[in-house]
């Protein structure tokens, strides 16, 4: 499972919103087994940077490289390696957590059997709620359904936007374990959070805004 050759790097990355430069001249390289904690105040451009790293937004300048290849060229190969979980839960209200999880996997072209999906959901404390439409779940429970994808989708790069939002302490600890597991197996992770992350050894990147 270790893929020592994997690396994600940003070269001279910049983001402009309207007439404001949110950040510029961002450089970093993360290799297998490293994770990065992206920090900054509200509006500093954390989400914008994650979206650029995921290939959803064009950088105003600079490039993002996966294994030394521009992610625009890497295309499907990059998205194969990437798991991006954003602000939105990306869940269908009318479907159950189990259905949501299986369909999300199916859209990615993966077959996910129910047993594996159930194990993932139960690990995130959703036992007994697997067959309940998502509209009856609380905010924290919805986040847990989303985070279950960390267990069902194999990916070497995790980009997580505020994964700890709305989670209780037990779920936060659990996420720490899952992250440690991922990094321990040679995965790469980048995440933002306003709470402390229960995982040692991460690098930090502080977005301070451009004057």
């Amino acid at each position: 499972m270790t893929q020592p050759e994997n690396s994600l790097s940003a070269h001279d990355l910049a983001c402009v919103r309207g007439h404001r430069t949110l950040f510029e001249h961002i450089h970093f390289t993360l290799t297998a087994g490293e994770w990065m904690y992206l920090r900054g105040s509200n509006g500093a451009g954390k989400t914008s940077m994650l979206r650029q790293l995921a290939g959803l937004a064009h950088p105003a300048a600079g490039s993002v490289r996966w294994n030394d290849e521009d992610i625009r060229e890497a295309g499907d190969a990059y998205r194969e390696a990437l798991l991006f979980l954003g602000h939105h839960a990306a869940l269908k209200e009318d479907l159950t957590p189990l259905e949501n999880l299986c369909l999300a996997a199916a859209l990615d072209g993966l077959a996910l059997d129910e047993a594996t999906a159930l194990v993932a959901l139960r690990r995130f404390g959703l036992k007994g709620r697997e067959e309940l439409p998502v509209k009856f779940l609380s905010q924290g429970q919805r986040r847990r359904v989303l985070l279950s994808r960390l267990l069902t989708r194999k990916a070497s790069l995790w980009i997580l936007d505020e994964p700890l939002a709305a989670l209780d302490t037990r779920a936060v600890d659990l996420l720490g374990e899952v992250l440690a597991d991922h990094v321990g197996r040679g995965g790469i992770a980048i995440l933002t959070s306003h709470q402390a992350i229960p995982l040692p050894g991460g690098r930090e990147l502080m977005l301070e805004g451009v004057a």
């Binding site: 910049a14 402009v16 007439h19 430069t21 510029e24 105003a60 300048a61 451009v210």
Partner: peptide, 9 residues
Amino acid sequence: MSSRLINWF
């Protein structure tokens, strides 16, 4: 306010 027009043009 940044005056740099980063690679836009």
